[in-house]
Amino acid sequence: MTVRPRPLSPHLQIYRFTITMAMSIVHRATGIANYAGTALLVLWLLAAAWGPEPLEAVNGLYGSWIGQIILFGYTWSLVHHMLGGIRHYVWDFILGMEAGQREMLAWANLVASTLITLLIWTIFVWVA
């Protein structure tokens, strides 16, 4: 019988993928996405400062179907990242650290960010 050497460090063959791991990755990705979305906000502000023609062009771009999808994603990214930060703040007080509580907070972060984003867009975009 041959003995396989043990890995030197833990990796995906050792760990099983969990919702808390996924939310950790998504939290980092939303942080990066927030930079890109903030650049879009700066572009809109610069167009507004430049005059009505550039503002109308940017509004046309953001009002297109692809622009709306990007802005919706940016909104979700902001809300999800904020709620992830609150979750980490709660963990700083050593609350919600039990196994079931960690998973519940991760799922709550995902569900709440989606619902809050839909609420924001319903009130400020789709109804207005």
Rank of each mutant, 00 (worst) to 15 (best):
V3K: 14
A47E: 09
I120Y: 03
G84Y: 05
P10C: 07
Y89V: 09
F17P: 06
T18N: 02
P10R: 14
I69S: 04
H88P: 00
V3L: 12
Y74S: 15
H80P: 00
G84H: 08
H81P: 00
R16M: 00
V26A: 13
A36N: 08
D92I: 01
H11D: 15
W126K: 12
L40V: 08
H11I: 00
I94N: 14
T38K: 06
S113I: 13
H81F: 11
I32R: 10
R87Q: 11
G60Q: 02
V26L: 15
V127M: 11
L119M: 10
L41S: 04
Y62G: 05
P5T: 10
G31I: 04
W50S: 14
V111P: 03
T20P: 09
F17E: 08
L45D: 02
A128L: 12
M23I: 05
H80S: 08
G73P: 06
G96C: 04
Y62T: 08
R6S: 11
S24Q: 08
H27T: 10
L12Y: 14
T114Q: 12
G73L: 12
G85W: 10
N109F: 00
P52I: 13
I86S: 04
V111L: 14
S77I: 08
M82D: 02
W126L: 09
M23Q: 11
G85L: 13
L115P: 02
I86A: 15
L119E: 05
R102V: 01
Q68I: 04
A108C: 02
F124T: 07
I94G: 03
A29M: 15
G60Y: 03
M82W: 07
I120E: 04
G67M: 06
I25R: 13
S9H: 10
M82N: 02
I69W: 15
I66M: 11
L45E: 07
L43E: 00
F72P: 01
V125D: 10
M97K: 12
E56G: 10
W44T: 05
T18R: 08
A33K: 07
V127F: 15
H81G: 14
I120Q: 07
D92S: 11
L8A: 09
L41M: 06
R16D: 05
L40E: 10
V42W: 01
Q101A: 15
V42N: 01
I69Y: 06
Y74A: 14
I14C: 02
G60H: 01
G96T: 03
P10F: 04
T30Y: 13
W44R: 03
L95V: 09
G84L: 15
S77A: 15
I19R: 03
L71I: 11
W91A: 15
H81I: 02
A36P: 07
G84Q: 13
G73D: 06
A106H: 01
S9R: 11
E103K: 13
S77L: 08
T114E: 12
L55N: 12
R6A: 12
Q13N: 07
M21R: 14
